[in-house]
């Protein structure tokens, strides 16, 4: 039997807007994945460490503060340093289109904007996660 996909839903930075993070976390759980939620006000380093400690295959970051340009690469850098460079990294939140290429360059697989159906996020995750 295939093992469950393990996902870390992370909220890096000081921003407390967690509606999206929680709704997506629940959609992952309802889709049969094992979900760990970082809780709020985490540093990028804390999130990377959690991802490694929990051995997740997916890190889904939610950012609505406009600080994605520095927080997201910092999380990915932390994952690399800990040798977790095969983790699928997703970003959701308020991300201006112009900023998306730079995030993808940094190693983000996909950025989901407001209004994305939950099913789209779940399906994308299932088809892109590296099975191990």
């Amino acid at each position: 039997m295939e093992s469950k996909i393990r996902v870390l839903v992370g909220k890096p930075g000081l921003d407390g807007h967690d509606r999206g993070a929680k709704v997506v976390a629940r959609a992952f759980r309802d889709a049969g994945m094992e979900v760990i939620y970082s809780g709020l006000h985490r540093t990028p380093e804390e999130i990377a460490r959690m991802a490694v400690d929990e051995d997740v295959a997916v890190v889904a970051l939610s950012i609505l503060s406009g600080a994605h340009g520095s927080l997201v690469p910092a999380v990915i850098e932390g994952l690399r340093q800990d040798g977790a460079d095969d983790v699928l990294v997703l970003v959701g939140g308020i991300i201006p289109k112009a900023d998306v290429p730079a995030l993808e360059q940094a190693g983000v697989s996909r950025v989901f904007g407001p209004g994305t159906p939950l099913e789209t996020i779940v399906a994308y995750t299932k088809s892109h996660v590296r099975r191990r």
Binding site: G13, L14, D15, H41, T43, S65, G66, G69, S70
Partner: peptide
Amino acid sequence: DMPTIMGYDSDHPKARSEVGLL
């Protein structure tokens, strides 16, 4: 901004990337 709301000065390590954003 978020650093002010969370009671950090703008040069605090947790604050530096969020100064003046929100």
